[in-house]
Simulated scan of single mutants.
Amino acid sequence: MIPFLDLKAQYQSIKPEIDAAVLGVLASAQYVLGDEVAAFERDFANYCGTAHAIAVNTGTSALHLALLAAGVGPGDEVITVPFTFVASVSAITYTGATPVLIDIDPATLTMDPKLIEAAITPRTKAILPVHLYGQMADMDAINVIAEKHGLVVVEDAAQAHGAEYFGSRAGSLGLSGCFSFYPGKNLGACGEGGMVVTNDDAQAKTIRMLRDWGQSKRYHHVLKGFNYRMEGIQGAVLKVKLRYLEEWTEKRRAHARNYRALLAEAPHITLPAEAEGRRHVWHVFALRSAERDALARDLNAQGIQTGLHYPIPVHLQEAHADLGYSEGDFPHSEQAAREVLSLPLYPELTLSQVEEVAQAVKEFAYVA
């Protein structure tokens, strides 16, 4: 069997370092925040090219606090996309603001900047682009519009650790950028974790207070805050893994290049693209096929696991029916949701496994 993801293999590759880091936290008894989390924050800010990094308990919490610190609240609107994991939209609703959705660029599956201005109203406060699958949205175009209309930009970089846009790292081009360290991410914790990065001192100060019950110092509650603190063990584990992230990313990029070369001539298959000026870090390799479900069944029958990212766009999810959108409102998002299929892609994958997966896809494509 070729698994979609193999977290055990990653752990085994760096087991002595991970074990030592965890035992170090247990010995120090700094179980929440503490020195290891602070060290990871410094390392991750340096990696992203930002002045600050504030560690939190999940990527969703990162989005929530970044929006709150940017002044988003009840009565405001935040523009984002429906083709994303539901957390992108849920975090907006947590603030009391209203998500306003626009469609994606069918080539990159990220926010289509040409649709932004038509969605702006007097209530619009922010734009939340999603760097989907490991590729950044068109940040120059988005930032030009945001500056023109006095809007803030919060990057959802949950899938884009180390991705670049014309040399700038994900998270560094908006007022703030938000990352998830869910175990399956390119940089994954042994549990949950998240981070907000920013170059804005005031944002950083506010987010640090908000994550820890709004405290400026112990028992001095300046803001109505939350218990969104990162645990010490997660900070220690992530600090170790960050040292390997570039190596792992280059392996992902090599696997993606091999998939693209091996599948270049496969009929009825649309391969994911790496847009000009962008460094794609391939959180997932999501091809497209009108016969997606049949292809998934065929691969599974051959012992090849696949993933669906994502089969139902947010505007068609029952939980968000109150947004008032209907089927047909976002045709590119809806078509992508019907067609995308993620193939196995992780650093520990071997070339022979990539070739086996690609061969199985081609055999299906030629008879479909």
Results as ranks from 00 to 15, higher is better:
Pro3Gln: 11
Ile14Leu: 07
Ala20Asn: 13
Leu26Gly: 04
Ser28Met: 02
Ala29Ser: 14
Tyr31Gly: 11
Val37Asp: 02
Ala38Tyr: 15
Asp43Phe: 00
Cys48Asp: 02
Cys48Gly: 00
Gly49His: 01
Ala51Phe: 01
Ala53Cys: 15
Ala55Pro: 02
Asn57Gln: 04
Val78Ala: 08
Val78Pro: 06
Ala87Asn: 12
Val89Gly: 10
Val89Glu: 08
Ala91His: 03
Thr95Asp: 13
Thr95Gly: 07
Thr98Met: 10
Thr98Tyr: 06
Pro99His: 05
Thr110Trp: 04
Met111Asn: 02
Asp112Tyr: 09
Asp112Pro: 09
Pro113Asp: 08
Lys114His: 12
Ala118Leu: 06
Ala126Leu: 13
Pro129Glu: 04
His131Gln: 02
His131Arg: 01
Tyr133Phe: 15
Tyr133Leu: 13
Gln135Tyr: 01
Val144Arg: 15
Gly150Cys: 10
Cys178Gln: 04
Ser180Asn: 05
Phe181Asn: 00
Cys190Gly: 10
Cys190Met: 15
Gly194Tyr: 08
Val196Asn: 08
Thr198Asn: 12
Asp201Cys: 04
Gln203Trp: 06
Gln203Cys: 13
Ala204Gln: 04
Ala204Leu: 07
Asp212His: 13
Trp213Asn: 15
Trp213Lys: 14
Arg218Phe: 14
Tyr219Arg: 14
Lys224Met: 13
Arg229Phe: 06
Glu231Gly: 14
Gly232Pro: 09
Ile233Asn: 01
Gln234Ser: 12
Gly235Asp: 03
Val237Gln: 06
Glu246Gln: 11
Glu247Cys: 00
Trp248Cys: 01
Ala254Gly: 01
Ala256His: 08
Leu263Lys: 09
Leu263Met: 05
Ala264Thr: 04
Ala264Leu: 07
Glu265Ile: 00
Leu271Cys: 11
Gly277Met: 06
Val281Gln: 05
Trp282Asn: 01
Phe285Trp: 07
Arg292Asn: 06
Ala296Lys: 07
Ile304Gly: 02
Leu308Asp: 05
Pro311Ile: 00
Ile312Pro: 02
Val314Ile: 10
Glu318Asn: 06
Leu323Glu: 05
Leu323Gln: 05
Ser333Tyr: 10
Glu334Cys: 07
Ala337Gln: 01
Arg338Ile: 04
Val354Leu: 13
Glu355Cys: 05
Gln359Cys: 05
Ala360Phe: 09
Lys362Asp: 06
Tyr366Lys: 07
